[in-house]
Write a protein that binds this DNA or RNA. Structure first.
Length: 998
RNA sequence: GGGCGUGUAACUCAGCGGUUAGAGUGCCUCCCUUACAAGGAGGAAGUCGGGGGUUCGAGUCCCUCCACGCCCACCA
C-alpha cells in the first residue's frame, strides 16, 4: 500500500530535508575524472558587502539549472562558488559602520585595525551569502568555496602582477583621479554622484604676446584653474584664430608664457568663443590634450586638502573657492574680465563626504592595453581576437559588440587604488632627489637583489624612482626595506583579482606555495586544470567590459587559453516601474521573502520564466501586511524610504513598507514582500505534487513491465508523442540558454497535457482490472520522465516526488523499466525515441479535444441538469473514434459506443469554440433549454466571421503572384484552409437550419 | 551625443515573414466531482506606440516620429 502524501506541497519541509540529503551524499562535489567530460561554471562572485538580491537569485538559478542538467547528462559537473572582496564598496560600508558606532574614522583606527574589522565583516556576510545560495538550491561544490582575497587567490594575483610587471605590461603613469579633498583620498567614478548645481560661466581674455591690443578670449566654469593653464587651444581650421596659432600669451597671475595651440579634438569652434584654456592637471579633456601635446607641460596647483599649492604663486594657501574669487578679481583689475553668466553646471560630488570632487593628477599603476612594437602581443587585441574568431561566443550574440567596442579603444587599465582593503601591490619603491644617486642605485641593484631572486625592476625617469616587484615575499624583502625601499600603500583594483577567477579558483599557478597551503581546501592546479577552460559564464551585461573582457585577457595572458567558451548574458530584474533595482533606490526585493512565501522551487521557476531572450523583466511587488497578510501593491513613493509607514487597508494596522531599513521598529513591523509572478511556480509545484499523489493512490498492484507502442491506446500514444517532443524541445532550449522556453514547455506539458487530459482519461482505465496494469506503467513512466525534466529548475519538489515514487514503483520507465536512481539529482537526463512522435496521433487527439470542449461550452452556457448533460455527452462520445473509448468515464458513462470513425482533422486544439455538428444536434434536442434567438445571433456572427476569413484566403489564392511567389507548402496550406473553412461554414449553416426549425 | 534594447489583453510577458495573435495573473459565470479551491469547466477582454515604405502577404523586415529603460562618452 502506497504511503499517502499530504494534500499540498510543503516547500519548507522539502527544502530542509533535501538540502541535507544532497550534501550528505556529496552529489555536488566534483573531482577530476578522466572518464567524464567536465562541465564547469565559476560563479560571478557576489560582493561581500551585503545580502543577495533578486539579481543574484536570477543569476544563480540559471547557473544551477545548467549545472544540474549537465550533471544528469553525465558530465563531470563542477560549479565553483565564492565571494568577492569588492574593495571600495566593502571598505566604505565598514568605515561608515565604524563611524556610526564609534565616531572613529579610518585614520583613527589605522590600516591594520580597519582591515581586521573588514575581515570580521566579511566573515559574517560571506557566511550569510553562502547560506542564501544554499537555500536557493545552488548545487555548488561548497568544498571549493573561494574568496578573492584568500591565499589561493592572492597567490594568483601576485603571480600575474609580477609577470605583467616583468614583461612591461604594467607601468607607472600619471592619471587624473577623482580626489575627495575632505577624506583626502581618490574615489572611483561609481562612488561619485553628478548633480546639476548653480554655478557661473565666466569669460576672460588673455593678451597675445608681442601684439598689443590683440586678445584671445575663452570661457570657464572654474576660474581658479587659470593658475594651472599651460596653453590656450583653438580648432586648427578656425579662421578667426588661424593666424595666432604658434604665438604665446602671458598667463597674468603667474607670468608664465603659454602657447596658443591647435587641437581639433579639444576645441569646438561652435562652442563659446571657440577658444579654450588648457589645464591638463585638473581637467580630463585638457589632460588628454596634453597627452597629444606633451610639450605644453602640466602643472598641478592643488594640495591634497584642496588649497592652492606653491605653483599658484601669490595665491598659495588659499582655499579653491577663495582662489576663484581672487583670480577673477585680478582679471577685472587687469581689464581682462569680459562677463559672467549664471549656468547650471554638473558637479561631481563624493558619495561619502558629500563634498565636490577635484580632478587631481597622481601617479598610478596601469596595465598597458595597446599594441606593442617589441613582438609581444597587445593585450586588447589579443582579447578581441578571442571573440572575433569565435573561441569565445556570446549569447545573445549582440553582446559581443559591447565587448569589442570597448576593447577597441585599447585604453590602459588603471589598477592601483588608494584603499586599504584589497591585494596590496607587491612593489617596493624608492625615489631619489639626485639623478646621480638614482643612476648609482640603479647600477647597484644587482648587489642588493641576489642573483636568482624572483624580482623585476622598473625605472621611472621623471620622478627618479626605482620600482622593484617581488614574485613572493622572499628573504631579501627585509634587505630592501632596510635600504629605504617601501612597499606601495596602494591596493589593486578589485577587478584585477576577479579577472583571474576562472583559473585562480582552480589553483593556478600551482603547486601551492606555503602560504597557499595554509588554506586546507586549496585546489590542486596539477589535477584541477582539467576543468579549465570553463564551459559557460553566466552574468549580466553591466560587467561585460569590467569583468568578462578582463577574464579573457588574463586567461590568455597567463595560460594562453580562453577562460570559457560561452558567455550567456541574462536580462535584468527591474522593479514594477521599469527601473533597475539598487540599494540607493530602495527598490530591491529580498529573495528570502519570496522563498518564504512561495517556496524555492517557485522562485526558481519564476526566475527561469523571466529569463527571456531580449527583455529586461519587471517585478511588481506587494507589501504583505505583517498583521493580516493582505497584499498591498507597492507604489513608487514607498521607495527611497519616503514612506515610513503604511496603514493596511484591510486591518487598518500600521507597518513599514518592505525595504532595507537600518533599524527595527517594534511598533511598526516591516512588511515582507510578495509578487504574484511567483504564484505560477508555486501552483505548478503543487500540481505536480498532486498528480503524483493521484498516481500513488492508484498504484495498488503495480508491476513493472515494458510497453509496446503499437499496442497502446491512442491517448497513450498521444502522451508519449508529447513527452518525446517536449523532452527534445527542453533539451534544445537548454542548449541555447532559452530558460523561459524551458519553463513554459515544462508547464504546458505537465499541466495542460498530462494533468488536464491524460490523467483524467486514465481514471476509467484504473478502475478496470484488465486495463489497469498498463495504465499504471505508462503513468509511472511518464511521471518519471517529468521529474527528471523538472529537476534542474525545481529540484526540491522533483526530489520529494522521486522518493515518494520510489517507494512503490522503484522500477519504472519507458519503454522498458529500470531501477530508479536513489536521487533525481543524479538520475539520467531522459531521451525518447523519435518514432514516438506522431503528427497523425496528435491530430486525432486534437479532434477529440475539440469535441469535448464544444460540449463543455454548451453545458456551461446552459446550466443543464445531470440527465441532460449525460445525453449531450453520449451524443458527443458517439461521434468519437472507437480508440477513444477511454472517454467513457471522462465525459460521462457511455452506452453503446459504435465503431464510428472520425478521420484526422486539420483542426488544432486551440481552435475549439466553434460548435461542430454532432454535439450541436445533441443540444438542439434540448430545445426547451436553449435561448434560440441568442443562439441564432451567435451563429450568425460566427458564420459572418468565417465568411470573411474565407474570402481573404480565397483572394490570396486567386492572386497569381502569391501562387507563384509563395513556397508550395504555404500555398497548399492555404488551400487546405479554404476547404476546412468551407466545411465549417457548411456545418454551421446546417446548425442554423436546425435552430430555426425549433 | 554614441551604442544596445523595449513599447502586443487591466498587469507581467511569449510570438523572430505565412491559418482566425497566445500564456500566466487579474476579471465574470458555474462547480468544494475521493489528485489538486495553490483546483476544475467555460467566458469577456487586443485598430500589436503613431506615420510611411518593402512584399502576393507585416506585431514580425526597412525608414521616420513619439515614449521608456540600460550602458558609454561629454557638457571649456
Amino acid at each position: 500500500m502506497a504511503t499517502e502524501l499530504p494534500k499540498a506541497y510543503d516547500a519548507k519541509a522539502a527544502q530542509e530535508k533535501w538540502l541535507t540529503f544532497w550534501e550528505e551524499r556529496g552529489y555536488f562535489h566534483s573531482n577530476p575524472d578522466p572518464a567524464k567530460k567536465p562541465f564547469t561554471i565559476v560563479i560571478p562572485p557576489p560582493n561581500v558587502t551585503g545580502a543577495l538580491h533578486m539579481g543574484h537569485a536570477l543569476n544563480n538559478t540559471l547557473q544551477d539549472v545548467l549545472i544540474r542538467w549537465r550533471r544528469m547528462q553525465g558530465f563531470n559537473a563542477l560549479w565553483i562558488p565564492g565571494t568577492d572582496h569588492a574593495g571600495i564598496a566593502t571598505q566604505s560600508v565598514v568605515e561608515r559602520l565604524v563611524f556610526a558606532q564609534e565616531k572613529k574614522t579610518r585614520r583613527d583606527l589605522g590600516r591594520e585595525e580597519l582591515v581586521n574589522r573588514i575581515w570580521e565583516w566579511k566573515d559574517k556576510y560571506e557566511a550569510r551569502i553562502i547560506t542564501q545560495l544554499r537555500e536557493m538550491g545552488a548545487s555548488c561544490d561548497w568544498r571549493r568555496t573561494r574568496f578573492t582575497l584568500d591565499p589561493v587567490c592572492a597567490r594568483a594575483v601576485r603571480e600575474t602582477f609580477f609577470r605583467m610587471f616583468k614583461d612591461g605590461y604594467i607601468y607607472r603613469g600619471k592619471r587624473l583621479v577623482n580626489w575627495d579633498t575632505q577624506l583626502q583620498t581618490s574615489v572611483a567614478d561609481d562612488e561619485t554622484d553628478t548633480v546639476d548645481t548653480k554655478g557661473g560661466f565666466w569669460t576672460f581674455k588673455y593678451e597675445v604676446d608681442g601684439e598689443p591690443d590683440t586678445f584671445i578670449s575663452f570661457s570657464t566654469t572654474r576660474p581658479e584653474t587659470m593658475l594651472g593653464d599651460t596653453a590656450v587651444c583653438v580648432h586648427p581650421s578656425d579662421e578667426r584664430y588661424k593666424h595666432l596659432i604658434g604665438k604665446t600669451v602671458t598667463q597674468p597671475h603667474t607670468g608664465r608664457k603659454i602657447p596658443i595651440i591647435a587641437d581639433g579634438i579639444l576645441a569646438d569652434p561652435k562652442l563659446g568663443t571657440g577658444c579654450v584654456k588648457v589645464t591638463p592637471a585638473h581637467d580630463p579633456n585638457d589632460y588628454a590634450c596634453w597627452q597629444r601635446h606633451p610639450k605644453i607641460g602640466i602643472i598641478n596647483i592643488l594640495n591634497p586638502d584642496g588649497t592652492i599649492n606653491e605653483a599658484g604663486g601669490e595665491y598659495k594657501g588659499l582655499d579653491r573657492a577663495k582662489a576663484r574669487d581672487a583670480v577673477t578679481e585680478k582679471m577685472k583689475e587687469l581689464g581682462l574680465y569680459i562677463d559672467r553668466a549664471d549656468r547650471d553646471i554638473p558637479l561631481k560630488i563624493s558619495d561619502r563626504s558629500k563634498t565636490p570632487i577635484e580632478p587631481l593628477l597622481s601617479d598610478q599603476w596601469f596595465v598597458k592595453m595597446a599594441d606593442r612594437d617589441d613582438g609581444k602581443p597587445g593585450l586588447a587585441q589579443m582579447t578581441m581576437d578571442a571573440a572575433t574568431d569565435g573561441r569565445v561566443k556570446f549569447f545573445p550574440e549582440r553582446y559581443a559588440r559591447s565587448y569589442l567596442d570597448w576593447l577597441g579603444e585599447k585604453r590602459d587599465w588603471c589598477i592601483s587604488r588608494q584603499l586599504w582593503w584589497g591585494h596590496r601591490i607587491a612593489v617596493w619603491s624608492q625615489s631619489f632627489t639626485e639623478r646621480l644617486v638614482f643612476n648609482f642605485q640603479r647600477k647597484a641593484l644587482a648587489i642588493l637583489v641576489p642573483a636568482g631572486a624572483d624580482a623585476a625592476y622598473q625605472f621611472q625617469e621623471d620622478t627618479l624612482t626605482i620600482h622593484i616587484a617581488l614574485r613572493a615575499d622572499d628573504k631579501f624583502k627585509a634587505d630592501l626595506e632596510n635600504n629605504g625601499y617601501r612597499q606601495s600603500d596602494d591596493v589593486l583594483d578589485t577587478w584585477f583579482s576577479s579577472a583571474l577567477w576562472p583559473h585562480s579558483t582552480l589553483g593556478w599557478p600551482g603547486p601551492a606555495l606555503p602560504e597557499a597551503r595554509a588554506d586546507r581546501t586549496a585546489p590542486d592546479w596539477d589535477k584541477d586544470r582539467s576543468y579549465y577552460p570553463t564551459s559557460v559564464l553566466v552574468t549580466n551585461r553591466d560587467i561585460i567590459t569590467l569583468w568578462v573582457a578582463r577574464m579573457v585577457l588574463t586567461g590568455l595572458f597567463n595560460l594562453n587559453r580562453i577562460p570559457f567558451s560561452h558567455v550567456y548574458i541574462h536580462p535584468k530584474v527591474m522593479d514594477g516601474f521599469g527601473e533597475g533595482m539598487s540599494k540607493s533606490k530602495g527598490n530591491g526585493v529580498d529573495p528570502l521573502d519570496i522563498i518564504d512565501r512561495y517556496g524555492t522551487d517557485a522562485m526558481r521557476y519564476g526566475m527561469a520564466k523571466l529569463a527571456t531572450e531580449t527583455q529586461d523583466s519587471r517585478l511588481p511587488v506587494s507589501n504583505v501586511c505583517p498583521h493580516c497578510g493582505k497584499e498591498v501593491p507597492v507604489k513608487q513613493e514607498h521607495m527611497y524610504m519616503r514612506t515610513k509607514k503604511l496603514a493596511c487597508p484591510e486591518c487598518k494596522k500600521e507597518f513599514r513598507p518592505g525595504g532595507p531599513w537600518p533599524t527595527d521598529d517594534p511598533e511598526r513591523p516591516t512588511a515582507k514582500q510578495g509578487s504574484d509572478r511567483f504564484e505560477e511556480g508555486r501552483n505548478f509545484a503543487n500540481k505536480m505534487w498532486n498528480a503524483t499523489r493521484f498516481l500513488l493512490m492508484n498504484l495498488d498492484g503495480y508491476t513493472p513491465g515494458a510497453i509496446k507502442l503499437e499496442e497502446l491506446p491512442t491517448e497513450d500514444k498521444w502522451l508519449l508523442s508529447r513527452l518525446a517532443t517536449t523532452t527534445q524541445a527542453v533539451t534544445v532550449a537548454l542548449e541555447g540558454y532559452h530558460f523561459s522556453d524551458v519553463a513554459r514547455l515544462l508547464y504546458d506539458f505537465v499541466w495542460s497535457e498530462f494533468c488536464d487530459w491524460y490523467i483524467e482519461m486514465s481514471k476509467g482505465r484504473l478502475k478496470d482490472a484488465a486495463a489497469r496494469p498498463l495504465a499504471q506503467r505508462v503513468l509511472a513512466g511518464v511521471l518519471d520522465g517529468i521529474l527528471r525534466l523538472v529537476q534542474p529548475v525545481m529540484p526540491f519538489v522533483a526530489e520529494s516526488l522521486w522518493h515518494a515514487l520510489n517507494e512503490t514503483a522503484s522500477e519504472r520507465g519507458l519503454p522498458s523499466p529500470t531501477k530508479a536512481e536513489e536521487s533525481v539529482v543524479i538520475a539520467k537526463w531522459p531521451t525518447y525515441p523519435d518514432a514516438w512522435i506522431s503528427a497523425e496521433v496528435e491530430s486525432r487527439f486534437a479532434r477529440m479535444q475539440d469535441l469535448v470542449k464544444s460540449v463543455r461550452e454548451v453545458r456551461n452556457r446552459y446550466q443543464v441538469d445531470d440527465k441532460t448533460r449525460l445525453d449531450v455527452s453520449v451524443k458527443c462520445a458517439e461521434t468519437v473514434a472507437a480508440d477513444f473509448n477511454a472517454l467513457a468515464t471522462f465525459i460521462g458513462p457511455l452506452a453503446g459506443i459504435a465503431n464510428l470513425t472520425a478521420g484526422p482533422s486539420a483542426t488544432k486544439p486551440k481552435q475549439a469554440g466553434g460548435i461542430v455538428r454532432p454535439e450541436f444536434e445533441a443540444y438542439v434536442s434540448l430545445a426547451g433549454l436553449i435561448d434560440v434567438t441568442a443562439e441564432i445571433a451567435r451563429l450568425q456572427k460566427q458564420i459572418a466571421d468565417k465568411r470573411k476569413s474565407l474570402e481573404g484566403t480565397k483572394a490570396k489564392l486567386s492572386n497569381e503572384k502569391f501562387v507563384a511567389g509563395a513556397p508550395p507548402e504555404v500555398v497548399q496550406q492555404q488551400r487546405d484552409l479554404v476547404a476546412d473553412i468551407e466545411k465549417q461554414i457548411a456545418a454551421m449553416e446546417e446548425n442554423m437550419k436546425d435552430l430555426q426549425s425549433t
